[in-house]
Design a protein around this nucleic acid. Structure first.
Length: 463
RNA sequence: UCCCCAGUAGCUCAGUCGGUAGAGCAGAUGGCUGUUAACCAUCUUGUCCGUGGUUCGAGUCCGCGCUGGGGAGCCA
């Protein structure tokens, strides 16, 4: 008797008229006289499978007491369903109940719940239709990230979570310490003495794996990191998390154009995989959360990404005749409304803006010959704005050192980063993609807290 | 961090002029020969976010706090 076949596989019809076993959790139960219909879901798909239990079952009495949330195993014959609503169903011959769920106490009902309520029961929300779809899409995206890079010969490098470096000299970091917070050791001048801390120095949770990624790119040529990152910013928005996942490829011998080509292929691949492999989930999400979801995703896959320099983009915005909430002028960063105008109104496709003013970008970005811009790029999507950002890195030792000094960054903290430019330096580049923001885009979910299993935000780290 | 809004049954909400709280859904029980968030009948359910104040009397008015949501800034 076949076991361990997921419900999604059973519904392909491959096992029709065979004895099968399904295990999962009850989503709904409806009964008529002498007959009970159970919808069983094991997380492998959106629809679940219909179990038909008849009065002849040995434990039919118990079956009638099954509540939403109960865990069961069913043995029976997989047959085409005579009724509308599902292609196949299982005629139960034996039903094993692992654990019932109290109808009075189980918080999930056979009706819609608000996303805010479900956030409070993050241990149960994966069992809902919405979160089932969201997390299957998230998984498909994560898998596709690895597939995309591995197929191109990129090495997956595990950059550290605990780090002594600060990737951009900006952004609040979470300190990691084992010091006694009530009575920390202090130096003679009274400041906390981290030489007595676990690592003998101040360390924090990483805000980016990029700098360490560059180390490996200068040995393995093409690498990527994919892991959690942490920002202690007090941001209370639907687009920020204190803990989120980033994908950061880093490539030796790439210039900015090569990197844009890679980013475009990467984003299109990720979306294509979801459209192909998660059609049922996207259809569900489209129905309940974003009516234009698949249209938008299809559009991205089939549009060539337009490329425009920051300087030209500012000129387009200035000449557009649009009245923006915030003014546009050369030297300031583009705001969301500007990005959306470019991608939605002007180009009507994804846009890659390149060569930003050096003053608004990070120290490690490669300075262009005009001495006022750097080889940076942002990919803008309709309705979203910036989805991915990257740059060619400054590989010239003197230029990098001068830039560090210009920004009053302590070069001693970057000694190993500078060494990469002293020994066998090469042109190289990379980009970063915030996974959750992208999952938001692909699923149509409005709040980033609903696309990560256990969101960490200011004032809340439940579960 | 700033601005705005909200917090009443397990969930979603109503609650008039300040007079001690109600509906739908869920749940329980019974019915129904194939149901699709099944349907029909009956029944149960409250720290009105917390705290201080005004008042004869506060779910309702006022102050403070907590939590949640939307927007802004920052960013991914």
């Amino acid at each position: 008797m076949p076991r361990n076949i997921k419900i999604a596989s059973l519904l392909t019809g491959k096992y029709c008229d065979q004895e099968v076993c399904a295990r999962g959790w009850v989503r709904t139960r409806r009964d008529s006289k002498g007959l009970s219909f159970i919808n069983l879901n094991d997380g492998s798909n959106q629809a679940g499978i219909q179990i038909v239990a008849e009065a002849g079952l040995e434990n039919y009495g118990e079956a009638l007491k099954l509540n939403v949330g109960a865990s069961v195993e069913v043995l029976g014959k997989l047959v085409p369903s005579p009724a509308k609503g599902q292609p196949y169903e299982i005629q139960a011959k034996a039903l094993r109940i692992f654990g019932n769920a109290s109808g009075e106490e189980y918080p999930l009902q056979k009706k819609g719940h608000t996303l805010e309520f479900l956030r409070e029961i993050a241990h149960l929300r994966p069992r809902t239709n919405t979160f089932g779809s969201v997390f299957r899409v998230r998984n498909t995206l994560a898998h596709a990230v690895h597939t995309f890079f591995q197929e191109r010969g990129f090495m997956y490098v595990h950059t550290p979570i605990i780090t002594a470096s600060d990737a951009e000299g900006a952004g609040e970091m979470f300190r990691v310490t084992t010091l006694d917070l009530d009575r920390p050791p202090r130096t003679e001048t009274g400041v906390v003495d981290f030489s007595h801390d676990f690592f003998g120095r101040e360390v924090s949770l990483t805000v980016s794996g990029q700098l360490e990624g560059e180390i490996f790119a200068t040995a393995f040529s093409e690498v990527y990191t994919f892991g959690p990152t942490f920002r202690a910013e007090n941001s209370n928005t639907s687009r920020h998390l204190a803990e989120f996942w980033m994908v950061e490829p880093e490539m030796a011998f790439y210039d900015l154009g090569d990197t844009i080509d890679l980013a475009e292929a990467f984003l299109k691949y990720l979306i294509s995989r979801c459209l192909e492999d998660r059609a049922e989930d996207l259809a569900f999400l489209q129905k309940y959360y974003n009516k234009e979801l698949t249209t938008t995703l299809d559009h991205i896959v089939h549009s060539p990404f337009q490329r425009v320099s920051y300087t030209d983009a500012v000129e387009i915005l200035e000449k557009s005749g649009q009245s923006f909430e915030l003014p546009v002028s050369w030297g300031t960063d583009l705001h969301s409304e500007h990005e959306r105008f470019l991608t939605e109104q002007h180009f009507k496709s994804p846009v890659v803006v390149v060569d930003y003013p050096r003053e608004i970008k990070a120290f490690y970005m490669r300075q262009n010959d005009d001495d006022r811009t750097v080889a940076a790029m942002d990919v803008l999507f309709p309705k979203l704005g910036e989805v991915l950002g990257g740059s060619q890195r400054e590989e010239r030792y003197d230029r990098l050192l001068a830039r560090l000094k210009e920004l009053n960054l302590n070069e001693k903290n970057y000694w190993w980063y500078l060494d990469l430019r002293r020994f066998g330096t090469v042109p190289h580049a990379g980009f970063g993609l915030g996974l959750e923001r992208f999952v938001q885009f692909v699923t149509g979910m409005g709040n980033i807290r609903d696309v990560i299993p256990f969101p960490r935000v200011p004032k809340n780290a439940s579960f």
